[in-house]
Every structure is written in structure tokens, then in C-alpha cells.
Computed example of a mutant assay.
Amino acid sequence: MEKQKLPNATLILILSIGSLLCCCFAGVGVIPAVIALVLAMKSIKIYKEAPELYDNYNSINTGKIISIIAIVLNVAYLIYTIALIASIGIDGIMEQYEMQQEYQF
């Protein structure tokens, strides 16, 4: 019997890599990372019921690992952003931005 592909393998990889690329946008990438992780866990559950029927488990596992890394990075950057706003405030951030703009050629 020919082996089948696990569902959503491509979607899991796209979401996890996309969330990894979005980690510097104030933690927005955590949403697709969580979606990818949930889809990966469902696919792994399907694989564990009948592993002899499927052949793309490695791509699902890779997507799961990337999404976990993306969640950690997004949460860390979100905490950094919150700490920065709490310590110097929005006005301090805007002053730094304006000073950078003055000294650019």
C-alpha cells in the first residue's frame, strides 16, 4: 500500500516560518505559531494511531519545533517591548526616534 501524506504539513511549515519572521512585530507572530503548533499536534496524533500509513512525519515534527521556537521568541520580544514601554514610556521612545532622525544625513 502506498503511504499517504499527513494533513496540513505544508500549512504547518508556512505558519511556523511566517511566525518566526514576524517575531519582531511586538509579538504578533505568536498567533500563527500557536495555530501551527495545534495543527502539528493533531497531525502527530493521527500519525501515532497508524504510523505505517504516513510518510511525512519529519516535516510535521520540523514545523512543530519551529513553532515552539517562534512562540518563545515572540513572547520574549513582547516582554521586552512591555518592559521598554514601562521603563521609559512612549514619549521616551518617540524622543529617541526623533533624535535618530535629526542625526541622519
Rank of each mutant, 00 (worst) to 15 (best):
M1V: 09
M1W: 08
M1D: 09
E2A: 11
Q4Y: 08
K5D: 15
L6K: 09
P7R: 08
N8D: 11
N8T: 03
A9D: 07
L11R: 03
I12P: 01
L13T: 04
L15M: 09
S16C: 02
I17S: 05
G18N: 02
S19N: 14
L20M: 12
L20K: 00
L21M: 12
C23K: 08
C24G: 15
F25W: 13
A26V: 14
G27W: 07
V30R: 02
I31P: 00
P32H: 02
A33G: 11
A33P: 01
I35E: 02
I35K: 03
A36S: 10
A36R: 01
L37S: 13
V38L: 14
L39T: 02
L39H: 08
L39E: 05
L39R: 08
M41P: 00
S43E: 06
I44L: 14
Y47P: 00
K48H: 02
A50R: 08
A50W: 00
A50C: 04
P51N: 09
E52Q: 14
Y54L: 05
Y54H: 10
Y54A: 07
Y54N: 06
N56D: 15
Y57A: 05
N58E: 12
N58R: 11
N58I: 07
N58H: 09
N58D: 13
S59N: 10
I60M: 08
I60D: 04
I60E: 06
T62L: 15
T62W: 11
K64C: 09
I65M: 13
S67V: 04
I68G: 09
I69G: 08
I71K: 04
I71P: 07
V72H: 04
A76V: 14
A76L: 15
Y77M: 13
Y77S: 08
Y77L: 15
L78I: 05
I79L: 15
I79V: 15
T81W: 10
T81P: 00
L84N: 10
I85S: 08
A86S: 14
S87T: 15
I88T: 12
G89Y: 07
I90A: 10
I93R: 05
M94R: 12
E98Q: 13
M99T: 11
M99P: 00
M99I: 05
Q100C: 05
E102Q: 14
Y103K: 13
Q104R: 14
